[in-house]
Amino acid sequence: MSDLAPVRREVMVPGSPAIAFDVFTRQIGGWWPIPAISVFHNSTVAFVDDRIVEHSATGEETVWGTVTEWLPPHSLSFTWHPGKDESQASRITVTFAESDQGTLVTLIHDGWESFADPAVARDEYNNGWQIVLAGYVQLASAPDAGA
């Protein structure tokens, strides 16, 4: 069962990795589908220093994530927690690879199943979530799952 593998999506875009990286980051406010996918819906989003910040029309602000690695034009990584506390962040890495037809952009969303809260991560809970998921995969993919 691959349900708990990272979510991986690819898209080919025309042009160089430099342009693809620039559109993804500096121009994110121009293409991100805010009405469908955002916290406030009537708002704008931008990379501000090392954070991805949404500003509502009424002056509210919320942070979607923090950049953890910035390697233009090759890749960037950021934490991801729109509408949630940063303790519930998952991780995203986007890579930009030059190809014959343009640039292959790959987005990997990892750790999305882990909503572990450090505040409650007691010793007994360390790595527990990983064990849960490993066990879940094993059990749910067994022929007599749920029997």
Binding site: M1, D3, L4, V7, R9, V11, V13, V23, F24, W31, W32, P33, A36, I37, V105, L107, H109, W112, E113, G135, Y136, L139, A140, S141, A145, G146, A147
Partner: peptide, 25 residues
């Protein structure tokens, strides 16, 4: 017991969301 494919809805939601985002991009 754990339900088989219990996490599938979450994964499907993420895939659809990112496909939408990346097509706009």
């Amino acid at each position: 017991a754990l339900a088989p494919d219990g996490f599938a809805p979450a994964q499907q939601w993420l895939v659809a969301t990112w496909d939408h985002v990346l097509s706009e991009y």
